[in-house]
Simulated scan of single mutants.
Amino acid sequence: MSHFINNDFSDILLHRHSVRHFDPTVKISREELQEMIAEAITAPSACNLQPWRFVIIDTEAAKDVLRSFFMPFNTPQLETAAAIVFIFGDTQAYKSYRDLWNQACEDGRISPEKRDEVLKTFLPLYEAASYEGLVHDAKTNSSLAAMQLMLVARAHGYDTNAIQGYNSKVAAEKLGLDPERYVPNMAIAIGKADLIHLNKEVQSSRYSVDEVSRFL
């Protein structure tokens, strides 16, 4: 059962903001972290490939690993967040694609004919794709899960900060992943805002809709 304490979507969406200083006394159970990830991976992905992987850092020993390749200006989040969720894109997710649809067929959620149509249509695209194309696909689609995780965390009553200030060349290997297969997307700090620091933080502004969009 979800631990949503905030079901006001407008508040979740419009009042979410990046927090750099968290209350270090606040802890989040691993069960709830797993629950939030389960909710986050209901996000869509191209061809339902689901090319995302999560590494959850919630111990001092694991934070020491992050300290070795995080940029210093992200120290406040690293030191005070209840957890850091590192999201990677999986460039080889397509290799499990057949298993995914075979299971759906066995469960009766899709007919054998529809399964074969899906596999014939989409799987060859990934098998023939360049590595650069697979990286782009993995990072784009895992970004959908990353944004959803931040909104889910807010629904659970927590604050977040998306982090890309780290040495991306070593992130996967440092966290025990194959660096050729897994490409770092972002790390998300999760916890409860330190209200004393929150009042001192600069509230970011946004460009106007006219500046960032146009109709054709």
Score class of each variant (00 low, 15 high):
Ile5Trp: 00
Ile5Gln: 08
Phe9Asp: 05
His17Ile: 05
Phe22Pro: 03
Asp23Pro: 01
Val26Thr: 13
Ile28Ser: 01
Leu33Cys: 01
Glu35Asp: 14
Ala40Gln: 04
Ile41Ser: 05
Ser45Lys: 04
Cys47Thr: 10
Leu49His: 02
Gln50Pro: 00
Arg53Leu: 10
Arg53Val: 10
Glu60Tyr: 01
Glu60Gly: 06
Lys63Ser: 09
Leu66Val: 11
Asn74Lys: 02
Pro76Gly: 11
Glu79Met: 10
Ile84Asp: 08
Val85Trp: 03
Gly89Trp: 06
Asp90Phe: 08
Tyr97Asp: 14
Asp99Ala: 12
Asn102Cys: 11
Cys105Trp: 01
Cys105Ile: 03
Arg109Gly: 10
Glu113Ser: 12
Lys114Tyr: 13
Arg115Lys: 15
Arg115Val: 09
Leu119Gln: 03
Leu123Gln: 10
Leu123Lys: 01
Ala128Leu: 09
Ser130Glu: 15
Asp137Ile: 08
Ala138Val: 09
Lys139Arg: 12
Ser142Val: 11
Ala145Met: 09
Leu151Lys: 03
Val152Ala: 04
Val152Arg: 02
Ala153Thr: 13
His156Thr: 05
Gly157Arg: 01
Tyr158Gln: 05
Thr160Glu: 09
Thr160Ala: 07
Gln164Thr: 10
Gly165Arg: 03
Val170Gly: 07
Leu177Ile: 10
Asp178Lys: 07
Arg181His: 03
Pro184Phe: 02
Asn185Ile: 11
Ala189Asn: 02
Ile190Val: 14
Ile190Ala: 00
Gly191Arg: 00
Gly191Tyr: 00
Lys192Asn: 06
Lys192Asp: 12
Ile196Asp: 13
Ile196Arg: 06
Leu198Val: 06
Leu198Phe: 12
Lys200Arg: 14
Arg206Val: 11
Leu216Lys: 04
Leu216Glu: 14
